Computed example of a mutant assay.
Amino acid sequence: MAILYTTHASATGGGRDGRAVSDNGVLDVTLTVPKELGGNGATGTNPEQLFAAGYSACFLGALRYAAGQQKIKVPDDAKITVKVGIGPRDDGTGFGIEASVTAELPGLDRDVAEKLVQAAHIVCPYSHAMRTATEVPVTLA
């Protein structure tokens, strides 16, 4: 695969209780643990929210790309919502995530919209990674 763009982000502090910053400094967020995972519910974001935001933006871009290939106009008020859940894996060795995508495409014929959503699901790299369980290299600096 030819890589067209690369970025970096780092987390410091307690991981889920700390800070995450992108390499250009535009993303700079306080991380907090949700109450459901034992946190105190302090104001901040968490990895699941960041994943859901990234996935939804990427999927909408993939949808617009697929629509452009088919010469279909995506409504300006199109909305992609990604639900991300986290919990212990059944094998007891750690945690897993699951995701679901809901597309709102007002004004488009349902059959056309469904075909676009399926095409976007093929194009979107987040969908591809979730579907294929992409291997992630992990190294110690």
Rank of each mutant, 00 (worst) to 15 (best):
A52D: 09
E98A: 15
V84T: 09
A129L: 02
A57T: 12
G54R: 07
G96Y: 10
A11R: 09
D111A: 15
G15K: 04
A67G: 09
V112A: 02
G85Y: 13
A53R: 06
T6L: 00
L108D: 03
H121K: 02
P75K: 07
A42E: 15
Q70H: 11
G68V: 04
D17W: 05
E36S: 15
H8I: 00
A57K: 06
L31Q: 05
P47E: 04
V117D: 01
T32P: 03
T43D: 14
V74P: 14
R110A: 14
K115L: 05
C124H: 08
D111W: 00
R16I: 05
P137T: 02
A57Y: 00
D109M: 02
P125E: 02
D76S: 15
S100W: 04
G107T: 08
V138G: 07
V117Y: 10
A133T: 04
Q118C: 07
T30C: 13
L105I: 12
K115I: 01
D91I: 02
A119L: 07
A9T: 11
Q118S: 14
F59S: 11
P34E: 04
G92Y: 00
A129K: 09
V136N: 04
R110S: 13
L50Y: 12
L140G: 07
E104H: 15
E36D: 13
L116I: 06
G25D: 01
L50N: 14
L31I: 04
R64W: 04
A42P: 05
S10C: 09
D90V: 13
E114S: 06
G41H: 06
N46F: 09
E36T: 14
I80V: 15
R16W: 11
A53P: 08
P47R: 11
D77I: 06
T81L: 03
G15E: 06
I97E: 03
L60A: 02
L50C: 12
G13M: 08
E114D: 12
R19H: 14
G107C: 13
L108F: 05
D109L: 01
V112D: 00
G96Q: 10
G87Y: 10
V33I: 15
A20D: 03
P137K: 03
T102I: 13
I3K: 02
E104Q: 15
V74C: 10
P47W: 05
R64G: 09
V138T: 03
A57I: 03
P106G: 02
D17H: 09
V138C: 06
A20N: 07
A57P: 05
K73M: 11
E48N: 10
T32E: 08
D90E: 14
H8S: 11
A20K: 01
A129V: 08
M130T: 07
L63Q: 11
I72K: 04
Q69M: 07
T93G: 05
I72Q: 10
V82R: 02
N24V: 09
V33P: 12
L60S: 00
T81Q: 10
S10W: 11
I3P: 02
C124G: 06
S127M: 02
A53V: 11
G14I: 00
I97M: 14
A99V: 06
